[in-house]
């Protein structure tokens, strides 16, 4: 890959172009086209009709009609988002919750991935299997199960009461703490897997050399293992952070009514206000917010590969 980005661009055969066209076609069909539909709706206005907005660009009514329709477009919905503090509060709160959850997931996931990468080779496939195993059960059911664990009369409180750790049940369900627990639990595999992949590739002779030169193990970890696992950490953190920002199911089931997240705000806008244009505008902004860290990540990756190359 690094050599291809050098000074001479090799000529591609027809087959080569076809091969590249497949992923681009895929992106166009399932990302770009839907995005433009959402973007188009975000410039429309709400109406009591099917579908509940106008203009609708009915192709059957001729070109003049399309031009008339085009004139109806406005950025009003985006301006509306700036007028009401609910929206930026939701965005901010989502980013905060996702950020804190990602950090906790990293703290929990790193030792797991590290332990897996350090176990004898014959055990690793089994451990890997165990990390993936929860996916065999529906995500929704696993989140629901946490209701049973965290509620006032739930398993966790019963256990703590029986052990005498607490005198009265802890209120965890329907609070932000439950949302953190849900996100960390649900997204842990997404962090462990890329991190494990990068830790497993790590050249162990480097650690041996450090030991020979009198470096204590903790310092060797700090100076060698940790820096070399950064790409895995970043990839894992993005895989957790990005879906967590837009998460709807976990805050809806585990969070309280005061848990403000953009996924819930979007839901209310779409279903309760039945305002498709404004909810589309919310979605477009959400996408922009998520694109920024992805671009940063890409830049970082590129720098890494340039340095390696």
């Amino acid at each position: 890959m690094a050599s291809a980005s050098g000074n001479s661009i090799p000529k591609r055969s027809l087959g080569g172009w076809a091969l590249i066209a497949v992923p681009y076609f895929w992106l166009f069909l399932f990302f770009l086209a839907p995005f433009f539909i959402v973007f188009k709706i975000s410039l429309s206005q709400v109406a009591i009709a099917i579908p509940p907005y106008f203009p609708t660009f009915d192709l059957g009514l001729g070109l003049d009609n399309l031009i008339e329709d085009l004139k109806e477009f406005s950025v009003e919905n985006y301006l509306f988002l700036t007028e009401d503090d609910l929206y930026w509060k939701s965005y901010l709160s989502s980013v905060m919750i996702a950020g804190i959850s990602t950090f906790i997931t990293l703290l929990v996931g790193y030792p797991i991935a590290y332990g897996m990468a350090r176990t004898p080779k014959k055990w690793r496939p089994t451990l890997l299997m165990l990390v993936i195993l929860p996916f065999w059960t529906s995500f929704l059911i696993r989140v629901y199960a946490w209701i049973g664990i965290l509620k006032n009369e739930g398993l966790l409180n019963q256990l703590l009461l029986a052990l005498g750790v607490i005198d009265e049940p802890l209120v965890i369900l329907n609070t932000n703490i439950a949302v953190y627990i849900g996100i960390v639990y649900s997204y842990l595999p997404f962090l462990v897997l890329p991190l494990y992949a990068s830790l497993e590739k790590l050249d162990e002779t480097l650690l041996e050399a450090a030991e020979d030169l009198g470096c204590p193990p903790w310092l060797a970890f700090w100076k060698i293992t940790l820096p070399l696992s950064i790409p895995g950490m970043i990839a894992g953190c993005f895989l957790v952070f990005i879906p967590a920002v837009g998460e709807f199911v976990i805050p809806d089931l585990l969070g309280g009514s005061d848990t403000l997240m953009i996924g819930k705000t979007l839901w209310v806008e779409f279903f309760n206000n039945r305002d498709w244009p404004v909810s589309s505008a919310v979605a477009v902004i959400l996408l922009l917010i998520l694109v920024i860290p992805i671009v940063l990540f890409q830049n970082q990756q590129q720098k890494m590969s340039e340095r390696d190359g």
Binding site: V46, L86, T265
Partner: peptide, 18 residues
């Protein structure tokens, strides 16, 4: 109606989020 409906849901969001 559409306009007052927004007031209703916005009020409700405020109530819910405290």
């Amino acid at each position: 109606g559409p306009r007052i409906n927004r007031t209703v849901t916005r009020t409700w969001t405020d109530v819910k989020s405290g």
